[in-house]
Design a protein around this nucleic acid. Structure first.
Lengths: 238, 238
DNA sequence: TAAATGATTCGGTCGCGGCCGAAACGATCG
DNA sequence: CGATCGTTTCGGCCGCGACCGAATCATTTA
């Protein structure tokens, strides 16, 4: 392989992501699934021949890996860094079309968009919806730099087993923000992060409203989680 | 603008980064500078006409902004998120060609590669060189999860006004890693992060070995910094 | 106002790459 | 062993976009 400048090396990677068909493939696999070539062809609406070429390019660049099983070949994301690129690209909104505050209602296509961890807190459709509901109910209010919990909110969190004042104290000690507003790449909306976001996420996993999925940051909503979100916050997760 | 799927929207952005000429432009501007169209054409070795087309595409997508001044038009990066995409792309090494542990010796081209902050610690060529030197001198050793400071190292840090044992204690309190190894996108090498990395960075800024630059994460090495790095660590920053 | 300089627009060429159908390949199954 | 199914390879078509020179526009300088 000949010497390349940093610039053209990133251009090569970018050109692999620049094709709509390949982009669909990567986004489809971005939640950690492994799918056979034929199914990917069907999803992207191209012939098996075309898909095969795309897949071989992606494999050659190590953006995806292939695993043979019988007469199928299963393709999966090659490295976590690949998903980070996708997310970074999604964050560069081609001028965010925020006409109104609607959430994308077809978020269900990919598990990683429905619910995932973002560092230590909850993100994706679920993270945004929960944050919205907390604001809507008056349990939290927006501040300049994030959120703050109201007296009513403190009770709500306590009912879930989360000590707000304790979290506030710890955040202060750690010189960490108490309840930060983190921008979501898939929803282009804010969700709750910081010390409180971490505790909320931890607790919802403890309560088994969500479950971790193997080898991915995507979370599964349990049946209990769906019911409880409905009851506690009036949130329906499609 | 018609409805687009998330996939194809990221593909559009990626296609803008996929062209080598545009890629050079974005990398050149990635340290926060603003350059006129003609100079960018010269740097990328294309005609002014060609460059103009590229620039207008990038502006239309808000990846860069333009500012008129006299008969020049100065172009600069449009949003911090754009640089994050570049860095994410650079991190997806087309199989890192790490034949040996050499550092890129032409890192000086872009200020942001020479020295920058990565969250709260020092990164780029400078960050990696300093980390290497600390290991080389036996002031730190590599551990499974990062680094640890030796007794000799503790003295070295103390001479600089950094209390290692205090940092260790604080890290423990904050449940934060003491000295993490963070992967550098430009050098593809590790550098020191975590609590100790933060304190080191803070202190070097206090001592005026480095200076923050306006509106960018790039740092400038001062003349004092160059001399001191040479004396304290035998490090020369080209 | 004319000349010079930076930047953009226009018109036209050319090559790369995505696409498909057909054929080949490889594994499984009857 | 032939039939079938999933996948890849091959050959050829076609359109998009990167490129440049020439012309145009805009701003500064003489």
């Amino acid at each position: 392989m000949q010497r390349r400048t940093e610039e053209s090396r990133t251009a090569v990677i970018a050109s692999l992501l620049a094709d709509p068909t390949r982009s669909v493939v990567l986004w489809t696999l971005s939640d950690g699934r492994a799918l056979p070539a034929g199914e990917l062809a069907r999803l992207a609406r191209v012939s098996p021949a075309t898909m095969s070429e795309h897949l071989s390019k992606l494999v050659r660049a190590s953006l995806i890996r292939v695993e043979r099983s019988g007469r199928h070949r299963y393709y999966r994301i090659g490295a976590p860094a690949v998903v980070r690129v996708l997310e970074a690209l999604a964050t560069v909104a081609p001028i965010a079309p925020r006409s109104d505050r609607g959430i994308t209602e077809d978020a269900s296509r990919s598990a990683i968009r429905l619910a995932r961890t973002c560092y230590d807190h909850l993100a994706g459709y679920a993270g945004v919806k929960i944050t919205d509901a907390l604001l809507e109910a008056g349990y939290m209010v927006e501040t300049g730099s994030g959120y703050d919990v109201t007296a009513a909110g403190e009770q709500w969190f306590a009912a879930l087993g989360i000590g707000v004042s304790d979290a506030r104290r710890r955040a202060n000690e750690k010189r960490r923000q108490f309840a930060r507003a983190c921008l979501d790449w898939s929803e282009r909306r804010h969700h709750i992060a910081g010390e409180l976001g971490e505790r909320l996420c931890e607790r919802l996993l403890e309560l088994a409203w969500f479950e971790r999925r193997h080898g991915t940051r995507a979370l599964r909503v349990t049946a209990l989680g769906r019911r409880s979100l409905k009851r506690h916050l009036g949130v329906t997760l499609l």
